[in-house]
Design a protein around this nucleic acid. Structure first.
Length: 277
DNA sequence: CGTTTTTGACCGGCGC
DNA sequence: GCGCCGGTCAAAAACG
């Protein structure tokens, strides 16, 4: 099905989710890496990290591209990028009481010397004119800061669902303003809200079978490597069982792996990581 | 009127 | 210790 749409590998700009659905995007991996090297201590996503992306089935349908992940928990041991990746923000991942006098809590909340456990983070870039893309979850903006060396601000969002600590950062690449860098931190402890604003779960998204394909090099040669996210209609969220997934294997090369569905809950379309050179 | 956004202040970590 | 910086808070404003 890689051909049910213009398989011409060219960049496209999306202004809406719908627009993305029927498209695919190819991006030069080096460009991405460069951007991330300059702005965030991230590194390319690893197969295991991919699991987190799967928490955002809607995003998988989105346009985008290459996925990059922080060097936290499950990232590969390749710290060449962010020396400070470990110290960056181990912020209050435990955002428990946002309501109370958190100012003092921030201090006492944690034991002395106890490093806050950093939530798993996943970042990726999206070519879009819209900063905050709909991903199926509800977010409330709680801050915005100017980004150093960039004329674009970074916005901070928090999942509005109670007791869900997932946070999200959205910023625009200063190198390529058409690219939006989104970073998720943490895992949702709840299903995707059924009441979404906007036609996110529109009819054309449901009732289809399909898969999202992520082309990537398994070993991160990251050279002249291109990422391709094929957007295909997802499976019917309603009827998806825990195993009724279906992987669509495209032409294969070296590596082709089906990511585990550990974090998929049961609402994510199947997808497959594959390598393409 | 409840919810979300805006925005300056504040906090903690880090480097010098 | 001080200043910078990324991240968060929270009151006020805006929104629907």
């Amino acid at each position: 099905m890689a051909d049910h749409k213009n398989s011409s590998l060219e960049e496209k700009s999306f202004t809406s989710l719908t627009d993305c659905l029927q498209s695919s995007l190819v991006m030069d991996y080096n460009s991405l890496e460069k951007v991330f090297n300059n702005s965030s201590p991230f590194q390319p996503i690893s197969p295991s990290n991919m699991g987190q992306i799967r928490n955002y089935p809607y995003l998988n349908l989105n346009p985008n591209s290459p996925i990059v992940s922080s060097s936290s928990i499950e990232a590969d041991p390749k710290e060449s990028l962010g020396d400070k990746s470990g110290s960056m923000e181990d912020n209050e991942g435990d955002q428990h009481g946002v309501g109370e006098s958190s100012k003092q809590l921030t201090k006492q909340g944690k034991e002395k010397g106890e490093k806050k456990e950093r939530e798993a983070r996943v970042a990726f870039m999206t070519k879009s004119e819209i900063d905050h893309l709909e991903d199926g979850y509800r977010w409330r903006k709680y801050g915005q800061k100017a980004v150093k060396n960039s004329s674009y601000p970074r916005s901070y969002y928090r999942c509005t669902t109670q007791k869900c600590n997932v946070k999200k950062r959205v910023e625009r690449s200063f190198q390529d303003p058409s690219m939006v860098i989104t970073t998720y931190e943490g895992k949702h402890n709840h299903p995707i809200p059924s009441t979404l604003r906007g036609p996110v779960v529109s009819e054309h998204l449901l009732g289809h079978r399909g898969s999202c394909l992520f082309h990537r090099d398994h070993s991160f040669p990251r050279q002249h490597q291109e990422f391709l996210v094929m957007n295909q209609p997802p499976v019917n969220y309603q009827s998806v069982g825990s195993k009724s997934y279906e992987c669509t294997h495209l032409n294969n090369s070296n590596h082709q792996e089906v990511v585990d569905y550990g974090l998929l809950q049961d609402i994510v379309p199947s997808m497959l990581l594959k390598h393409e050179s």
